Computed example of a mutant assay.
Amino acid sequence: MSLLFGNRQTSAGARQRQKLPWYRRLLMVPVHHLQQAVGSLGELWRNPFASLMTMAVLGLSLTLPSALYVLVKNTSAVSGEWQQASQMSLFLRKDIDSKTIETLRTQLSLKKEIETVSLITREQGLEEFREQSGFGETLDYLESNPLPDVLLVIPAEEFRSPAKAEALLKELEQAREVDFGKLDLQWLQRLQALLDLAKDIMGGLAILLCLSVVLIVGNTIRLNILSQREEIVVMKLVGATNAFIQRPFLYTGVWYGFVGGILAWFATAILIWWVEGSVLQVSELYQTQFQLTGLNLNEMLMIWLIAILLGLAGSYLAVRRHIRSIEPR
């Protein structure tokens, strides 16, 4: 017996419920919803293959945007670790003493826009240049050190975008102790452009795939409604309202999203596990300790909620159109 015929007793007993006290009728509302939710789950269990196919399509459709989100999140984490991309070099004037330099360094470190400030003295700079250039003996002929003292400034995380980093550099160059500043802005702009492109691609694909999920669920519910057309006619003849008849189909869409969200979790986790080994090999080549980060609990719950809402939206679009069009003749 179908789900709708299983609800005929509830519809037929409507007059009896009207005689109950108001608080009893209020308590019966969640009970009836629970009955229809469990009944819709039982209906899905009677057709496990078709139901599982729809759930798998929903889950796999959400897997791609979830995997892209993980990719963008890890890329953003890597870019956050590349502090040298937004690192500023402030070349100081040669006529200032070490006390003035230390005072400037302390002042800059107190700014909210700056995370860290480190000093490379002219002696350290010359020694580093001697080791890396291979002109050690030639530098011995210099009468004085031509290099200035340099302050390496790393902006705070919220000031590492190209526009904010450039504005901060111009502000720091106004200090009287600073001769000029340098920022590899072109590299920073390229990095930000790549991240923005990845986010735009992820957003576009997510929207398209979510729309496809809504259409797939809506078409599946539409076929279910058409297959139970005669039962719906009988339900309306015994006094069932459209809202009462729609409810089991809406819960069916919720169950599609509920299970589809879980499948999306597992599929995303498998993809992360699949590429994790390759990521470790690449990080070893670059001598870094980067580890691929998957979905955390809040992100998993968000994907689950989106899947349920998509299933509900698809079923709602189907039942609102087709249930009302079915009327007894």
Score class of each variant (00 low, 15 high):
S2T: 11
V57P: 06
S325E: 10
I270G: 15
F244W: 12
E230R: 10
A175W: 08
K94C: 00
Q124A: 13
L223V: 11
E143L: 09
L280Q: 15
I262F: 11
L34V: 09
L197E: 13
G136V: 01
I101E: 08
A77V: 02
L310G: 09
G80W: 01
L188A: 07
T252Q: 15
L271V: 14
N224H: 04
V38T: 14
N74R: 08
F91Q: 04
A313F: 02
S40W: 00
Q228Y: 00
Q16R: 07
K199G: 11
G6H: 04
L126N: 05
S212C: 12
A193R: 12
H32C: 02
Q84T: 07
A156G: 06
P48M: 09
R15S: 15
G203M: 12
F180L: 02
L119W: 11
L191I: 10
F91A: 08
Y251H: 11
S133M: 08
L237T: 02
L169T: 12
A175P: 00
L20K: 03
E299S: 07
L310K: 07
L250Q: 12
L110Y: 06
G134S: 10
T138E: 12
L168A: 13
Y69Q: 09
Q132I: 04
M53I: 15
S133E: 11
R8C: 03
K112A: 15
W82G: 01
E127W: 01
L168E: 12
A56C: 14
R122I: 04
V238D: 08
A12P: 02
V217N: 04
I96N: 06
F135I: 04
K111R: 15
L183V: 03
V282A: 13
T100S: 13
V238L: 14
Q35H: 08
S315P: 05
G260M: 05
G253K: 09
E327I: 01
G277R: 07
D179C: 00
V319C: 09
G134Y: 06
R324P: 00
R321K: 15
A167K: 07
L185P: 01
G125S: 13
K182R: 14
R24K: 14
L60M: 06
L152A: 05
L194H: 04
Q107C: 11
Y69T: 08
V282Q: 07
S76V: 06
A12Q: 15
L271R: 03
S86L: 00
L285M: 12
E81K: 10
V254G: 12
R229E: 08
E284C: 02
A240C: 07
L285H: 12
G261P: 08
V72M: 01
T268I: 08
Y251A: 06
V259M: 05
K94Q: 14
R190K: 11
S89R: 05
T241R: 04
E143R: 11
